[in-house]
C-alpha cells in the first residue's frame, strides 16, 4: 500500500509519520502532485493558522487536487478544518469538500482547548472498535459545528464535530497520532478502509 502524508509546510508531519511507523507502516512525505494522486491513501495534517496553511496549499498547487482525490483521505486537526468551505480564522476560503463553516469557540471557554476530551455518537468505519466516550487529544481554538457529516461529537461549551466524513473524505479534529493507543486504533482503521 502506498501511503502519502501531504507535506506542504504547515503540518505536524513527523508525528503522523512516527505514529504510522509504530503501526508498522511506512509513509511517504511529499507535496508532489503525482505522488499524491497515485497514493492508495492520503493523510492531510495541519497545525498553525488557517490562512497561512491555505496559502501554502495554494503555493504548492494542491487546492484543486485534494478535493478531486478518489482514494481515502484523512484530514487531521487544521487539515480537517481546511477541508471545509470557509474558516473564521483569518476569513479563509477552504477546499470546500465539506459545505461547512469553521467557527471560533466563545470566550466562555478557555481558548485554545488543550487536552483530552471524550468523543461520542460514533458512526463510521473510521471509528470501529472504539467505545463511546473514549478520550482523544485536542488542541484548537476553532471548531466545526455539528452537521450531517458529523461521525463523532465532542463537547466544549457546545456540541461540535470531533470527526467528519463525506464519501472518501474523513477528518479528525483531534490528533489520533497523539491520542495514545485509541488514537492509533483510528489510524489503523483508516489504513483498513
Amino acid at each position: 500500500m502506498k501511503l502519502v502524508i501531504i507535506d506542504y509546510g504547515a503540518g505536524n508531519t513527523k508525528s503522523v509519520q512516527f505514529a504510522l511507523n509504530r503501526l508498522g507502516v511506512a509513509a511517504i512525505l511529499t507535496k508532489n502532485i503525482e505522488e499524491i494522486r497515485s497514493a492508495d491513501k492520503v493523510i492531510f495534517p495541519g497545525v498553525g493558522h488557517a490562512n497561512a496553511a491555505m496559502g501554502k496549499i495554494t503555493e504548492a498547487g494542491l487546492e484543486e487536487l485534494i478535493p478531486c482525490l478518489k482514494q481515502p483521505v484523512l484530514g487531521v486537526c487544521l487539515g480537517m478544518q481546511l477541508m471545509c468551505k470557509f474558516s473564521e480564522e483569518g476569513n479563509t476560503k477552504g477546499l470546500g469538500i465539506f459545505d461547512l463553516e469553521v467557527k471560533k469557540f466563545g470566550t466562555e471557554n478557555k481558548i485554545p482547548q488543550i487536552g483530552w476530551n471524550t468523543i461520542f455518537d460514533l458512526k463510521s468505519e473510521l471509528l470501529s472498535d472504539l467505545n463511546e466516550n473514549e478520550y482523544m487529544y485536542f488542541v484548537h481554538s476553532y471548531y466545526v459545528p455539528k452537521s450531517e457529516f458529523t461521525i463523532a461529537t465532542a463537547n466544549y461549551g457546545l456540541n461540535y464535530s470531533a470527526a467528519l466524513q463525506k464519501n472518501n473524505f474523513y477528518g479528525c479534529q483531534f490528533h489520533p497520532e497523539k491520542s495514545g493507543d485509541k488514537g492509533e486504533l483510528i489510524l489503523k482503521n483508516f489504513l483498513n478502509i
Binding site: 513527523k14 508525528s15 487529544y137 497523539k178 491520542s179 495514545g180 493507543d181
Partner: peptide, 11 residues
C-alpha cells in the same frame, strides 16, 4: 526529541 516522538504516543 526525535526518539521521544518516535516512541511515545502522547504530546
Amino acid at each position: 526529541v526525535e526518539r521521544v516522538a518516535q516512541q511515545v504516543n502522547i504530546p
